[in-house]
Design a protein around this nucleic acid. Structure first.
Lengths: 156, 156
DNA sequence: AATTTAGTTTACTCAATACTAAACAAATCT
DNA sequence: AGATTTGTTTAGTATTGAGTAAACTAAATT
């Protein structure tokens, strides 16, 4: 499987945003993140984003707000300029994936409560759920460790 | 945060399916998986699923087909009975999460191709993308290791 | 063979949401 | 103050997909 590379920045942005979209985010969410990974300069204005991604002003406004709230991008102000610029926040890639890994933690909690209920009911077969709970706890703990280890080793 | 447990099996199923739904699956997808984790007996017929989950026959047919294709459930036949039964496949919980972890691998590949393109273009700043690629490769490798370790230690 | 049972497929409805255009608000410049 | 630039909010369109009822197919029982 030789990784045939992209033939434009747009190609990368599309592939990247498609993957992000699969996770349930709006298309433009991934487009902006992807673009901010490779654009030059690293900070981009409203018109920059509108032109390069072919999206409306309203979309830039709405989606940048989402990304700001989630702490994935930040505003940049430049002296003497009226426009807002946006750039990726340091560590945003890690934060993004860390959020994904919360799934294991959530499922651990849900299965844990399920087990608690089953025990009250003296339910015959809690084996399946117990296995699931074990696995999710393991995964939640270990993946958290992974991130911490990475952060420690790779300075931010 | 004391985990106040559920007060019915349905409560568990709803909580579980809601979390699965967040991942982009249909509601019923998670409902069936959740129910098959706690139902008694572990194998369930069309009417079982229709009644306990309050869903239509068509939905049972469609969603069980999806789950079968993905290898998360399997058919059970009982001698002298015409009905099909479904049960969770052994290891389905692990398989499910392993699929989630593919995200890191996919993003590693996408960022890798992006870097390849940037290098051809002699792009000034590939620092952001390189960092992202590093991180995703780390995560893909390590999380794969985690699963393997778990499988080795916990016999299936 | 005819009828009942079991499951699939088709066609439709309904709800959610992404995205945008246009109206609006706020701030800066002349 | 008036005009222009910059960004937000509102209201509307359009697409997508989940879920179901009903029609259909296949198999087994009488």
């Amino acid at each position: 499987m030789s990784t045939s590379s992209y033939s434009s920045k747009s190609d990368f942005v599309e592939a990247f945003s498609l993957k992000i979209e699969e996770l349930g985010h709006p298309r433009i969410y991934g487009q902006i993140l992807g673009w901010l990974l490779i654009c030059d300069p690293p900070h981009q204005s409203f018109p920059d984003l509108m032109e390069n991604l072919a999206i409306s002003k309203a979309s830039v406004s709405n989606v940048t707000r989402m990304l700001l709230e989630r702490g994935l991008i930040e505003k940049v102000r430049i002296k003497g300029e009226r426009q807002i610029y946006f750039k990726l926040k340091e560590g945003s890639v890690i934060d993004f994936m860390q959020k994904q890994l919360r799934l294991a933690l959530d499922l651990e909690e849900i299965t844990s409560r399920g087990l608690e209920f089953l025990s009250k009911e003296k339910d015959t077969d809690s084996k399946r759920l117990k296995k699931a709970n074990d696995f999710h706890r393991f995964l939640a703990e270990q993946s958290e460790n992974l991130i911490e280890k990475y952060k420690a080793d790779h300075d931010l």
